[in-house]
């Protein structure tokens, strides 16, 4: 894969340095058959250092998860080698079914088929809490 030239796929840019692996993990990019590149600590005029993820296929992408981990990221959509969309993200009010509550005493750990739900508590401080047990979760955790 030439990581500079994607024909059809995504470039997730402006990720805070150090958060790319979390996005990779939560999006389960290791399950993909296509090429995926992670660039860590790239130089950035705006951010100093940033991470970038490139995905060489237009897979269904869960923007909610990316927004939760890093709302400052931008998602560039590439088709036929051209940038066709630049998605800017905002922190979601709720994240349903995508993330797991870290509290071992939470009912989500044992109740069958119960989706984990995170609710945005403080947009400024980027604080979420579990809908069921109120445990605080921060994107940088």
């Amino acid at each position: 894969m030439n990581i500079n030239e994607i024909q059809d796929g995504y470039v997730i840019d402006h990720i805070h340095a150090g958060r790319a692996m979390r996005i990779y993990r939560y999006l389960e990019l290791d399950q993909l058959d296509c090429s995926v590149a992670i660039i860590k600590n790239a130089k950035s005029q705006r951010m100093g250092r940033k991470d970038i993820i490139k995905i060489d296929e237009l897979i269904p992408l869960n923007l909610e998860i990316i927004s939760y981990i890093d709302a400052s990221a931008t998602v560039n959509v590439i088709k036929d080698g051209k940038l066709i969309d630049k998605k800017r993200l905002t922190m979601p009010e709720r994240v349903v079914g995508a993330l797991k509550c870290k509290n071992p005493r939470c009912i989500t750990q044992t109740e069958q088929e119960l989706q984990h739900v995170f609710v945005l508590k403080d947009r400024e401080k980027a604080i979420y809490s579990c809908y069921y047990c109120d445990t605080i979760h921060k994107p940088e955790d």
Partner: peptide, 10 residues
Amino acid sequence: RHPKEGAPTV
């Protein structure tokens, strides 16, 4: 009464 937190919400 339940040992798991949030059980009554469910």
